[in-house]
Design a protein around this nucleic acid. Structure first.
Lengths: 171, 171
DNA sequence: ATACCTATATATAAAGA
DNA sequence: TTCTTTATATATAGGTA
């Protein structure tokens, strides 16, 4: 959009692609910032790139508190509708796989379960969780989760006085 | 940004605010579309406004499919490089498998994306706890989770005899 | 409101340091 | 590579129908 118009296709030159990505990412975040202030809305942008080692998220999690609060105030009906949509989408991806892809499929299922778990945090009602085929799976997953969290709490507890948690995650 | 420069503050006139919102929302989505095609990244935007009765999410599930398809059409060389990078930052979600499983891997990517998205709505990440600076928060979260799922397991246990969970996920 | 119009404000591709 | 710079491409505020 500047000295020259470019084709809408993957930029082959990697360094150019990287530069373009950074510029445009900045532009997007600025736009998101403006629309939220000008229009009194709450927004969030997520970008997975090969350039950054983790997803870029704006606003950052602490700022998203507003999003959560807003979400919690949403009438149940609407919230459920949203959840159902998500489930429809996920179901399309999760449930069909050949035997050769069994392993990947299980990974997908695990992710789907993670989604369900997170749905719970988001305030989803119990009766919508019937997508879990076997309650046993849920128990196993729950146990793993608990262990994971327990470990995390220990680690964080021990290091909380001196450490920047950020580092742990990165390595 | 046109006939006149406007102050960066909430637009008081509601109808003007609405018009501005729609224009800018469209602009954002277009930008998101461009950055994903030009730079080979996957991105998502969520906007929660009072104008729409539920969050606007882009790409919407069907559109996300297109983004992923486009990604699959990326030239071999680039794709491989990209995939390697993907493993670096999505290693937790994506298994290292042969090209035959490429498609499934893409599904995982999409799911990982959804997870992050929902993490945002929930305000807390179960996969990457970096945002929880205080271990106390984590404990509280964990307790809530345990209670929530304990209840759920009970409920599901009672109902498991009469419900066909399989059908729900496929539909 | 909704859609198009157009003068300006911004974003940004390419080049230069 | 990472900055500036700057010529162009886009986005869009305020009008108008």
């Amino acid at each position: 959009m500047a000295r020259r118009k470019i084709k809408q296709e993957l930029i082959s030159n990697e360094s150019k692609r990287k530069v373009t990505f950074r510029k445009r990412k900045g532009g997007m975040l600025k736009k998101m910032n403006e629309i939220t202030t000008l229009c009194g809305v709450i927004g969030c942008a997520i970008i997975y790139s090969t350039f950054d080692n983790r997803p870029e998220i704006w606003p950052s999690p602490p700022e998203l508190t507003r999003v959560i609060d807003r979400f919690k105030e949403t009438p149940e009906e609407e919230r459920d509708k949203y959840t159902v949509d998500q489930k429809t989408f996920l179901g399309r991806y999760i449930s069909r796989s050949s035997n050769a892809l069994e392993r990947e499929r299980k990974k997908n299922q695990g992710l789907a379960m993670e989604l369900t778990l997170i749905d719970c945090l988001a305030g989803k009602s119990l009766h919508d969780l019937k997508c879990l085929e076997d309650p046993k799976e849920l128990e196993v997953l729950l146990e793993e989760k608990i262990k994971c969290f327990t470990d995390k709490i220990e680690t964080m507890g021990l290091k909380s006085k001196q450490v920047n948690y950020e580092n742990d995650i990165k390595k």
